[in-house]
C-alpha cells in the first residue's frame, strides 16, 4: 500500500507538471483527490491493515494528499492570476476620454448676486421684505417725500398705468410698506430686493427694467456713523476685506443727510484704471438718514427713532463683479452668456 501511495504521488506530480490549463487542472484534482479519485481508491484498502500499520499509512496518505494539493493550489493560483490579468487587459479603457457629467444649469447672474447680497444682510440680522411691482403713486412717491409736481420727480421718468398707479421706479416704496407692517416696532431691519422700471432708452448701461436692493434700519438712536459701519461691512463681504468706502453728499428726497457711496475699484484696487475712469473709485449705492417725513409716513415718530436707508442696483454690482460689458445681456438670455454663471 505504501508503494502504491508513493507511486500515486510520483504519477500525480509528474502529470501535474505537464498540466496545460485550468480545465485540465480541475480534471486532475478530480482524478486524484475526488470522491472517486485514485487516492480514495487506495485508501479504501485501509481496513485490511493492522493497527500498527494504520497510523503510518494514514500519515503517508496525508502527506501525499498534501503534496498534490499544494501543487494544485499553486498551479490554480497561477491560472487565476493569469485569468485576472487577461481580464484586466481586455477591460482596459482610455481614461483620457471625457466623463459623463452631471447636467449643469445656472442660476441667473442677477439672482446670484441678489442672493449673495441677501445672505450678507441675513447674516447681519435683516429680514427680506417684498412689495408689488405695480405701485400706487402714494407709496412710490408721496410717502417718500416726493409730492406731486415736485421737481425731484424729474429724476425718474415713470411708466404710469393710470394717474395714480404706476410701475414702481424704485424699491423704496417697500420701505414704507415694511414700516407700516411692523406696526412701529423697533429695531426694524429689512432689505427689499426687486424689479423696478424707469422710462429709459436701452443701451449698454441703461435698461428700462432693472433690479434694486433697498435696505432700511429704524431704531432708537441710529446714527449716520452706523450707516457707514453697515455699508463698510457689506462692501467688505461683497468685494473683499481690502474694500473701502467713500461717502459724498448727495440728494434723495427720502433721506437727509443723503450720500452717494463709492467703493474702491475692484479692478485696480484704487490705483486708477479704465473701469473706474482713473479715479480709483466706483459709485455703487445711494444712502442716507431716513427723512423725518418718511418715518412719519411709515408710522414712526421721528422724535423717538431714527433710521438709515440705502439702495443699490443689482445690475451695476453684477456688471462690476463679473466684468460684464453690456447690461442688455441680462435680459436677452443667450445661453452662452447664462452658462458662464454655472460655477460656484
Amino acid at each position: 500500500m505504501k508503494e502504491r501511495l508513493e507511486a500515486l504521488r510520483a504519477e500525480a506530480l509528474q502529470e501535474l507538471e505537464k498540466v496545460a490549463g485550468p480545465q485540465e487542472l480541475g480534471d486532475l484534482r478530480i482524478k486524484y483527490l475526488g470522491k472517486k479519485g485514485a487516492l480514495t481508491e487506495i485508501l479504501r484498502g485501509m481496513g485490511a491493515l493492522s493497527a500498527e500499520e494504520r497510523p503510518v499509512i494514514g500519515e503517508l496518505a496525508n502527506n501525499v494528499r498534501g503534496a498534490i494539493e499544494a501543487v494544485l493550489e499553486e498551479k490554480g493560483a497561477a491560472y487565476r492570476r493569469a485569468e485576472t490579468d487577461a481580464r484586466l487587459r481586455t477591460e482596459t479603457i482610455d481614461v483620457s476620454l471625457p466623463g459623463s457629467r452631471l447636467p449643469t444649469g445656472a442660476i441667473h447672474p442677477l439672482v446670484k448676486v441678489q442672493q449673495e447680497i441677501e445672505d450678507i444682510f441675513i447674516g447681519l440680522g435683516y429680514s427680506i421684505a417684498e412689495g408689488p411691482e405695480v405701485e400706487t403713486d402714494y407709496y412710490n412717491f408721496e410717502a417718500l417725500n416726493l409730492p406731486k409736481n415736485h421737481p425731484a420727480r424729474d429724476m425718474q421718468d415713470s411708466f404710469y398705468v393710470t394717474e395714480d398707479i404706476l410701475m414702481r421706479t424704485q424699491t423704496s416704496p417697500v420701505q414704507i410698506r415694511a414700516m407700516k407692517a411692523s406696526g412701529g416696532k423697533t429695531p426694524l431691519k429689512v432689505i427689499c430686493p426687486g424689479k423696478v422700471y424707469r422710462r429709459d432708452d436701452d443701451d449698454a448701461t441703461h435698461s428700462f427694467q432693472f433690479n434694486q436692493v433697498e435696505g432700511l434700519v429704524v431704531a432708537k438712536g441710529i446714527r449716520m456713523s452706523d450707516l457707514k459701519g453697515t455699508l463698510l461691512q457689506f462692501v467688505q463681504e461683497m468685494f473683499g476685506r481690502q474694500a473701502r468706502i467713500r461717502l459724498r453728499p448727495s440728494f434723495f428726497p427720502f433721506t437727509e443727510p443723503s450720500a452717494e457711496v463709492d467703493v474702491t475699484c475692484s479692478q485696480c484696487g484704487g490705483s486708477g484704471c479704465r473701469m473706474c475712469k482713473q479715479t480709483g473709485w466706483l459709485e455703487i449705492l445711494g444712502c442716507g438718514m431716513v427723512h423725518p417725513k418718511v418715518l412719519e409716513a411709515g408710522g414712526y415718530d421721528p422724535e423717538e427713532v431714527s433710521g438709515f436707508a440705502f439702495g443699490m442696483g443689482i445690475e451695476r454690482i453684477a456688471l462690476l463683479k463679473y466684468g460684464i460689458d453690456d447690461i442688455r445681456h441680462f435680459y436677452t438670455n443667450d445661453l452662452r452668456f447664462l452658462s458662464q454663471f454655472a460655477r460656484m
Binding site: G123, G125, S127, I128, P187, M224, G229, T230, E256, A259
Partner: peptide
C-alpha cells in the same frame, strides 16, 4: 444737520456698528 455734516466732511464721520437689540435674519 446735513449742512454741518457735508462741511465737516462725510469722511470725518466715524464708522460704528449698530448697537441695541439684535434681530434674527431669515428668509
Amino acid at each position: 444737520i446735513e449742512e454741518v455734516a457735508r462741511l465737516y466732511g462725510y469722511d470725518n464721520i466715524p464708522t460704528t456698528p449698530i448697537h441695541g437689540d439684535t434681530t434674527p435674519g431669515a428668509l
